[in-house]
Amino acid sequence: MLKDIAYNEMSKEMLDQLKKGAFLTVKGDDEINTMTIGWGTIGFIWNKPIFMVAVRYSRYTYELLEKTNEFTVSVPILKDMKKELAVCGTKSKREIDKFKECNLTAEKGKVVDTPIIGECELHYECKIVYKQAMEPGMIDKDIRETKYSNNDFHVLYYGEIVASYIKE
């Protein structure tokens, strides 16, 4: 059963888990992909609840995000999904079918067409309201040197949270 919650009701649990990883899922045309994210934030901008995710240009997910206007974030809260998060964070859909490899279930969500990861308990469905390429010259020097030494920068996607819920 999917129980609606306020977008910020489980933000502490989400942020604690985000450091270990969560699943960003995107559907473009007839294909679905998920990847591990370890960075992101929930906030309130433009009078809307927002989930901001950062996706590098080199990721296959970036290609799919550019073809759609939505994404989902699925967060394992109780279940240990370390192995699945490791695979989805290091392998590309260009190489493997991550859903098959990790036995992940793409389940229909409540609002958007992009599925959620059925094995996770906490879910956010988002419609992209803004995207922004990072401006390399504006990044703190230490962060640029440690996180972007290869110049593989992120695009920031701001998704309005149109549904947030837990799986009971």
Rank of each mutant, 00 (worst) to 15 (best):
K27Q: 10
M14Y: 08
D30V: 13
M14W: 01
K12T: 12
L24W: 02
K20A: 02
E13Y: 08
N8L: 13
S11W: 08
N8S: 14
G28T: 07
E31H: 12
V26E: 08
M14L: 04
N33C: 10
E31N: 14
G21V: 07
T25E: 05
G28Q: 04
F23G: 05
M14I: 03
I32R: 08
E9C: 01
L15Q: 06
N8D: 15
N8P: 09
N8V: 08
F23Y: 06
I32F: 12
M10N: 11
V26W: 05
N33G: 12
K19A: 03
N8G: 11
L24E: 00
K19E: 04
T25L: 07
S11C: 10
Y7G: 11
L15W: 03
G28N: 03
K12H: 10
K12V: 13
G21R: 01
E9A: 12
I5N: 11
S11D: 13
E13L: 10
T25F: 01
A6W: 13
L18S: 01
A6I: 12
S11E: 13
G21Y: 02
A6N: 15
L24T: 03
V26I: 07
D16I: 00
M10W: 07
K20R: 09
D30Q: 14
T25Q: 02
A6S: 13
K27T: 05
E9R: 07
